[in-house]
Design a protein around this nucleic acid. Structure first.
Lengths: 208, 208
DNA sequence: GTCTATAAGATGATAGAC
DNA sequence: GTCTATCATCTTATAGAC
């Protein structure tokens, strides 16, 4: 039997996933946790404090999970395909949807913004490792911006899930593009040595 | 002197930008519009009805604005650079931030989801025209997925603005990547005819 | 179209008994 | 730690006077 703290944290994650940031209230969360409403404030001080604790907990769990998903990724096309797999798992896990709600709330709430930063830092750290590894074995080795690329990939994925949530058809169209981009990445990586050197040279002279 | 309807619509857009979807209430909006609170329901039926009308109005205006911004874009790198310019203008306009809030709310509210779909359809229509034009003159002409790419670009940009809102430093890092990607796009487009044909051939055989 | 007044309920948070 | 009870305030929405 979990203690009250964990019951409240689990319930908060659940409400955030099913009803979004606008659906979270001390009473709603307490009801779902089958716990007295006043205990939210006894254990976490404020409602925001509970959301903060809950989202950090959820992010810690998902970051560990993503680490193993990315472990075997060795090429840009493989990374894009893992992106597609993560999207399929997302409907059940709701990890990205939760982060999206946290970021939306964080735009105007400093405490939620801090929690969102924590989450993005953990996620981008995982992706940055993969991106850096992938870039080394690619034509794009001259393109050394792993930190920026990791953050772009991560933020883009959140945007895509948000889009998918309001327009599944449009979201599917957008996500199919990941497959096409994977093909493109393979095409560029599969170039002969001459063309490869041409791209590399151009990247070098263009600065960065 | 604008009429009450317009005052309420303008105030809603304003509240959505400054306080997000969680900050919107009939009383807050009416106060900002300097209008009686009951008039929200007289003119729009429900609060959601007002948000719906306001966001559609805002999207119509921004889509027209983006059309002219994209008019002269002729290459992939130019498109990425316009993306950077739009980000700089975003702090003042708040168009993307508003769409992000609408999409976050739309995840669990069918009416807001419909408004968000309307907005994304208008925006992607603008971008799709540019993307299709850019792809024709690029090595990627074999990569014909303009609808998917337009939606991916649009959704990604929303994710990036959301990220920038909670972590300006991280957001800046991610957005700088757009510049690097523009350089990369130019490098690939600037390949000699031999390498160009190699890429094109690989894209063709890879299907799509 | 606009106003006041008000219903009917939800909200974050606290005091104090146990 | 957990409970009840409560405060003060906010919420959407409506009825009815002007």
């Amino acid at each position: 039997m979990p203690d009250t703290r964990t019951k409240l944290i689990d319930a908060t994650i659940d409400v955030l996933r099913t009803d979004g940031i606008t659906g979270v209230s001390a009473r709603v969360v307490a009801a779902r946790a089958q716990v007295n409403q006043a205990l939210v404030f006894y254990h976490f001080g404020t409602l925001t404090g509970l959301i903060d604790a809950a989202t950090r907990h959820a992010v810690d769990a998902s970051a560990d999970h993503y680490r193993s998903a990315f472990a075997e990724v060795g090429s840009l096309s493989a990374l894009l395909n893992v992106g597609r797999q993560l999207h399929e798992a997302e409907q059940a896990s709701g990890n990205v949807a939760l982060m999206a709600q946290l970021m939306a709330g964080g735009q105007h709430d400093p405490a939620l913004a801090a929690a969102a930063r924590y989450g993005m830092d953990r996620w981008t750290a995982e992706i940055e490792t993969v991106v850096a590894r992938v870039l080394r074995t690619s034509v794009l080795s001259g393109f050394a911006d792993a930190p920026g690329l990791a953050r772009t990939v991560c933020a883009s994925f959140i945007g895509l899930e948000l889009y998918d949530g309001v327009d599944p058809a449009g979201g599917a169209t957008a996500l199919e593009t990941l497959t096409h981009l994977a093909v493109l990445a393979d095409a560029i990586d599969g170039l002969g040595p001459v063309a490869r050197r041409a791209v590399t040279a151009r990247l070098k002279t263009a600065g960065r």
